[in-house]
Design a protein around this nucleic acid. Structure first.
Length: 215
DNA sequence: CCGGTGATGGACT
DNA sequence: GTCCATCACCGGA
């Protein structure tokens, strides 16, 4: 009953690691003309803003990072690796530029629509397993960048059922170059098959590049 | 199961 | 020109 409540702005206006922890189990929901897809978050990652070497905000305010420096409760969506979109939720007070990256989750609403957007996924468990897969399943891209997720718009996050600390795992970041920060920024639900399984070995190697002379 | 690699384009130096 | 907050596919063990 009362469990389907959109998270208020105050929820995001707190320390980024607390917000990250509390987002686990919550449902991100995106409504489009094609239908609605909801994803229950199983893995997120905190980015502490300007003082965080691993954050896009570390270099300061730029056209791209502008949204991160704005008020909490908004979506920061960025383009990566020439083909992927990743979504963050802006946290803490305005100007702090902290945000939580949504890394993985389970599709709990609109599975058929999610499948149509993620044709390459062999199993439903892979539909939103990974930050770029999650946005693809939700139908989120540059259009949603900067959207207020606390208003009455197409994008929202619903409070989930309580998650016990026993089921929460903290770990290091995934796929981030800089940040040798000792702080465990990544949080996930233990024993959840939708948690991403990104391999460090998957990094680009110094092998043959497309360098050489251009054609 | 596991590691290696191409794809692909924008942001920033 | 270099570096990506990634993913899918491929081949070897």
């Amino acid at each position: 009953m009362g469990t389907s409540l959109r998270l208020p702005r105050e929820f995001y206006d707190r320390a980024v690691t607390e917000v990250a922890r509390d987002l686990l189990g919550c449902v991100v929901r995106h409504a489009t003309p094609a239908g609605v897809v909801g994803v229950r978050l199983s893995e997120v990652e905190a980015y502490a803003g300007e003082s965080d070497p691993g954050s896009h905000a570390f270099r300061g305010r730029t056209p791209r990072t502008q949204v991160m420096f704005g008020p909490p409760g908004h979506a920061y969506v960025y383009f990566s690796y020439g083909m992927h979109w990743c979504m963050n939720l802006v946290c803490a007070g305005e100007g702090t530029a902290s945000a939580v990256l949504l890394r993985a989750g389970e599709v709990v609403e609109g599975v058929e629509l999610a499948r149509s957007r993620r044709v390459s996924a062999k199993r439903d468990v892979d539909l939103a397993r990974g930050p770029a897969r999650l946005t693809q399943a939700l139908g989120v891209d540059r259009v949603q960048n900067g959207l207020d997720i606390c208003g009455a718009g197409e994008l929202e996050v619903l409070r989930g059922t309580a998650v016990d600390d026993v089921d929460v795992v903290w770990g290091p970041r995934v796929g981030v170059a800089g940040a040798g920060a000792p702080t465990p920024w990544r949080v996930s639900l233990s024993n959840d098959r939708t948690v991403s399984d990104y391999r460090v070995g998957g990094r680009r190697s110094p092998g043959p590049r497309k360098s050489g002379r251009r054609t």
